[in-house]
Each structure stands twice: as structure tokens, then as C-alpha cells.
Design a protein around this nucleic acid. Structure first.
Length: 559
RNA sequence: UGGGGUGUCGUCAAGCGGUAAGACACGGGCCUUUGGAGCCCGCAUUCGGAGGUUCGAAUCCUCCCACCCCAGCCA
């Protein structure tokens, strides 16, 4: 069940604004990603918040790409972002905007500030600007070019645009206060010279506005009522306010919240990019990645992700959410929706000695005990089957109640079987086959005499089995907080070597023949799996494990 | 040691002067043809610390402590 989320401090602010300050104004938010990477679960939090707020208060939410740095942005990223937002279940209708849509307007804004004597062209290079900026505890010094006349600044800025000066040679700066304790106010750079083809404007521009000179104005232009962003921008708010005031334009209300951190993974786009580039994962959509596309390929549902975002809440304090909560959300969703099926991933062959050689029968199985509406299917049974290796122990400890020599268990939807023999490899001593007998009176799994068994095993008929490759995924990192690496320690060294285990061949019940890419199933007693949307084919099916089922036995084993 | 933030259960998170919600995790029990699911019970005498105000404080005041962010021509 998706629980009703408790209202956040942002809801309180908005309701207050709606009730008093801005009667009649509808809520208008925006989700403003930079197209320099794929969206991750942290972005999902922001997406759910922004689109969710618009939904809750009958407002609108724009999708706006903050594309002010062409050196890092690509159309591939904008496409993936569009796809992911849509997949999550949100619609920006015709309100798809780009900061680059406003380049001309932003240029005019800059000229306006120059005319007002509030901006100047600086010839200092990047290194010099840094030195002049001062430190956290010492005031900065004013640039020797700070006093240029309005006309000279106008001329120089125009020529910057016209391409007269090389990259990095000059910048346009806001004239604010080099002694401000807030470094963002120490004459921040507004424009830089950058000869770089932009994914939308091409080579039209060779100067590009800084994010700080674009973001607030973009929100203002779009009439955003509540500009929701993450905490690190709290320090920038005074700067945005300064620009908006000096520009004499509409002020959105900025509200900051804490970004999401999830245990055993990373949220830094830079580090995720590194994992991709260095080949630690197969791509942005590797099922181990915390990206939306990775989670999608892993088998997560949009519903589960939205539910997760509702449950984690929104606040201002730094936090680290336990990935177990995310896993709980998918399990809960998939438990209701995923059809059950039997698959043996670490096969152990079992021959039922008293079952007739050439006999085969079809047994009825429930597609989902949680939902009778999902109906039943028939599963073939025969003399030779596969069971899970882990379901047999030759010398079981007391708490193990699966199959063991002489012991009787139930084969799900089939029969009670008793282990009568163990065949081992002569050299290695490894168990390679089991011999069992079955009780024909227990067909379907019920015993007419009322005798009980302590375990029910899943199985697959050997001659009917479908072969498939199965990938088991685990946490990407071994440490709860991989960003907290010691000095000199490469975060890549914290990768979990067991984050991917490939099992091949695995045996599936034949009903899975009709499985299509993206389809999700519960492999009984093992977990939720989905057909890989890239690598799977009818000839060679590939299943990804989304998440295991909760496993009481595993817990007992760990002690 | 400048500025901006934040500190409530193992992890998130409500609470807004009237005597600590909820979720996940964890522990126990019931039930069970998935050691799944479901159901039941338990789980902060205490809110970073110390003072103070008040009949009454997690909520107000004072001081202290801890953690996070800021010195990109990144966003």
C-alpha cells in the first residue's frame, strides 16, 4: 500500500502563500536538470516533489533544461531525461523549456546591468580572479578593471559576443561587493567566452551565461512561484535576489531541501560518469546503477519509486536513507503484481525412481496467491526434475528443514517426495544427483492422510525446462557510504565484487517462453526478476534479479 | 578561526508551549502448498549538551558542542 505521505515544510510554505501572500496565484514549479548525465533516484525525489506539488495544488510543473554549459551537455542526455521523467509518470505537456531559449533575453539583461553600472568586463584570467576573490576569512580585492566606464563595458561585452576575444580572456562580472562574507557576492562571473558548439544553439554563441546568471531569471521568466532546489543553493539565494532586484523583474520564492543519499550507492553524477567511463558498469543503465534507467532495467516499477519518494519525506537535514527502504517498496509493489513462476537457478538433478519413465503430467499452479484474478497455469511434471542445490543438505543442521537423505518435502503444486539416494562425483565428492520416491496420493501437494512436511520446494521438469541466463545483482558498493573514502582511496576500490553474478544455464518452467523484454515475475522462493530489455532474446532469455524475497533462512545462517 | 544551514529511535521522519505520530530495519509470536505474503506484539520516560523562562519545554531565551555547504570562467 502506498502510504499517505506526511506533509513537508514545503507544503506548509506553499499553503501559507496560497492562503495569504498570493491569493489567486496557482502553484507553478519546475524540474530543472542539466543535461550532462542520466537522472538518478535523487532526481526522482526532486521530480516527485515538483510535479507532485503541482498536482496536489492544481498547478503546473515545467521541465526545463539548464543547458548553460555546452562543454558537458549532450542531446543524448536530454532524451534520456525526457524518457525517464515520462516513465516515472509525469507530464510536462507543452512546457518543455531550455535555459538556452533565453540566451538572447539573458544577454539583454546583462546589457541592462552594464548600463546600470552593475556589471563590468574583467580582463583578469581565471587564476587571477581566484586570487582576487580572497578566502573564507579574508575579504577579496577589487579587480583593476572594475572601474571601467559603462560605454567601455558595453563595447567590450558586445565584442565578447562577436568573438573578438579568445576563450578565457575576458568575463562579464556583476559589481557587488568584494568584501562580502558570502563569496557568491564577490563580483560573480556572469558570462564567459567559450567557443563550444551548443546542442541547441549550435555555434550562434561564443559567450555563455553562468548558471547563476541564468537560473533565477529563467524561473522568473517562466513565472515559477516556488523554485525548489537543493541546500547547496541556499548561499546563492542572495545573489539571485540581487539579480532579480537589479533587473527589476518578478521574484519566484526559492525553497531549499536536502538532496537524497542512499546507502551502498552514490548519487554524484561525476562519480557515476566515472563508473561508466572506466567500465566498472556496462553503462548508465546498468541494472546496478542508481539511475532511473538502471532501476528500470533492474525491474523497478515507477510506482515503487514514487512510493519510495513519498516515504522518505522532504526536509533540510543531511540524511542517508537505507536502501532497504527502496527494496521494501519494490517488493511490496511486485508482490501484488508479479505473476509467480518456478525457476531453478543453481540446478541439482533429481530422479524420481518410482515415477514412470515415459509419464508426463500437467499440474495446476496459481499465478498469484495474492490475486486469484490472475488465474492459473499448467506446469509439466516428469520423472526427472531440477531443484535448487541450496534446498538439499546431506548433513543438515537442526534449523534446516528442506531436503536431506531420508527426509520428505513437498514439491510445490506437485507431490511429496522423499530422498532415497545421493549420487556423488567419485573424485570430488560433490553431490551431482538425487534419487527420490514420490507419493502418488499427494498429487497437487496435499496429503490425504494429513501428514505434514516442513518445506515446500520449487522445481522444474528437466525435459521441459527452458534454459536462460540469470543475473543476480547486489549492492554496487561494499560500504554504506562509499563517498566517505579515506585519503588516497579510490572510490572504485569500494565496489562490491559480488554486485553481479551471472548464472547460466538456469532452468525455467516452460510458461516463460512467452516472456517479453521488461516483463516482471516472481521466481518462487527466490525473488523478483525481469526480462532484460537489452540483452534478452527468445533464443537466449536473460533475466535480471530485481530484488530477493525476504529470506528468513539466510538470516538464520548468518547467525 | 568569515558566511549559510542542520541536530528527535539503528535509518528516514512527524511534532510549531500541554506532557514523543508513522515508516523501514530489528526482536518475538500466529498463520502458511513461497522459511514469501499477511496478521499480532515489542522497540526514544526522552528530543546534541548545559543553564534559564514557565504550572508545564523537543517546542521560547542564553551559552556551548557536533556535522554539512561555500574560495569553478561547473550546475
Amino acid at each position: 500500500m502506498e502510504q499517505k505521505p506526511t506533509k513537508s515544510f514545503i507544503h506548509a510554505i506553499i499553503e501559507d502563500d496560497l492562503g495569504t501572500n498570493k491569493p489567486g496565484t496557482a502553484v507553478h514549479t519546475r524540474f530543472p536538470p542539466e543535461p550532462n548525465g542520466y537522472l538518478h533516484i535523487g532526481h526522482a525525489k526532486s521530480i516527485c516533489l515538483n510535479f507532485g506539488l503541482a498536482r496536489e495544488y492544481s498547478g503546473k510543473c515545467n521541465l526545463r533544461f539548464d543547458d548553460t554549459n555546452p562543454t558537458k551537455e549532450e542531446v543524448e542526455y536530454v532524451q534520456s531525461i525526457q524518457e525517464d521523467v515520462r516513465w516515472l509518470g509525469f507530464d510536462w505537456e507543452d512546457r518543455e523549456f531550455y535555459a538556452s531559449d533565453y540566451f538572447e533575453k539573458l544577454y539583454e539583461f546583462a546589457v541592462f546591468l552594464i548600463r546600470k553600472g552593475r556589471a563590468y568586463v574583467d580582463d583578469l584570467n581565471a587564476d587571477e580572479i581566484r586570487q582576487y576573490r580572497g578566502t573564507l576569512t579574508e575579504a577579496g580585492r577589487e579587480s583593476p578593471f572594475r572601474g571601467r566606464s559603462v560605454d567601455e563595458n558595453l563595447d567590450l561585452f558586445k565584442r565578447m559576443r562577436e568573438g573578438e576575444f579568445p576563450d578565457g580572456s575576458r568575463v562579464l562580472r556583476a559589481k557587488i561587493d568584494m568584501a562580502s562574507p558570502n563569496l557568491n557576492l564577490r563580483d560573480p562571473v556572469m558570462y564567459r567566452v567559450l567557443r563550444q558548439t551548443h546542442h541547441r544553439t549550435g555555434d550562434k554563441w561564443c559567450i555563455y551565461p553562468m548558471y547563476d546568471f541564468a537560473h533565477g531569471q529563467s524561473d522568473s521568466i517562466e513565472g515559477i512561484t516556488h523554485s525548489i532546489c537543493t541546500m547547496e543553493f541556499e548561499d546563492h539565494r542572495p545573489l539571485y535576489d540581487w539579480f532579480l532586484d537589479e533587473l527589476e523583474i518578478y521574484h519566484p520564492r526559492q525553497i531549499e531541501f536536502a538532496r537524497l543519499n542512499l546507502s551502498y550507492t552514490l548519487m554524484s553524477k561525476r562519480k557515476l560518469l566515472k563508473l561508466v567511463e572506466e567500465g566498472h558498469v556496462t553503462g548508465w543503465d546498468d541494472p546496478r546503477m542508481p539511475t532511473i534507467s538502471g532501476l528500470r532495467r533492474r525491474g523497478y516499477t515507477p510506482e515503487a519509486i514514487r512510493d519510495f519518494c513519498d516515504r522518505i519525506g522532504v526536509a533540510k537535514r543531511d540524511s542517508m536513507v537505507d536502501i532497504a527502504l527502496l527494496e521494501h517498496c519494490v517488493r511490496e509493489d511486485l508482490n501484488r503484481r508479479a505473476p509467480r513462476v518456478m525457476a531453478v537457478i543453481r540446478p541439482l538433478r533429481v530422479v524420481i525412481e518410482n515415477y514412470p519413465e515415459d509419464q508426463m503430467e500437467e499440474l495446476e499452479a496459481l499465478n498469484n496467491p495474492e490475486d486469484p484474478q490472475m488465474g492459473i497455469r499448467r506446469v509439466p511434471f516428469s520423472r526427472a526434475i531440477y531443484i535448487e542445490r541450496e534446498d538439499f543438505m546431506e548433513d543438515p543442521p537442526k534449523k534446516f528443514f528442506r531436503l536431506a537423505p531420508g527426509r520428505e518435502v513437498r514439491l510445490r503444486y506437485a507431490y511429496f517426495v522423499r530422498c532415497t539416494g545421493v549420487i556423488k562425483d567419485e573424485k570430488t565428492g560433490e553431490v551431482i544427483e538425487l534419487r527420490c520416491t514420490y507419493d502418488p496420493a499427494t498429487r497437487g501437494g496435499d496429503s490425504p492422510d494429513g501428514r505434514k512436511v516442513k518445506a515446500t520446494l520449487h522445481w522444474v521438469s528437466a525435459p521441459h525446462a527452458l534454459k536462460a541466463k540469470v543475473r543476480l545483482y547486489e549492492h554496487l558498493f561494499v560500504r554504506p557510504d562509499p563517498s566517505e573514502s579515506k585519503e588516497g582511496e579510490d572510490f572504485a576500490s569500494l565496489l562490491n565484487p559480488a554486485s553481479l553474478e551471472v548464472l547460466d544455464p538456469c532452468y525455467l518452467e516452460p510458461s516463460l517462453e512467452k516472456a517479453n523484454q521488461g516483463d516482471r515475475y516472481q521466481f518462487e522462493r527466490l525473488g523478483y526478476f525481469c526480462v532484460d530489455s537489452k540483452d534478452s532474446s527468445p533464443e537466449k532469455p536473460v533475466f535480471n534479479r530485481t530484488v530477493t524475497l525476504k529470506d528468513a533462512w539466510a538470516k538464520i545462517q548468518k547467525g
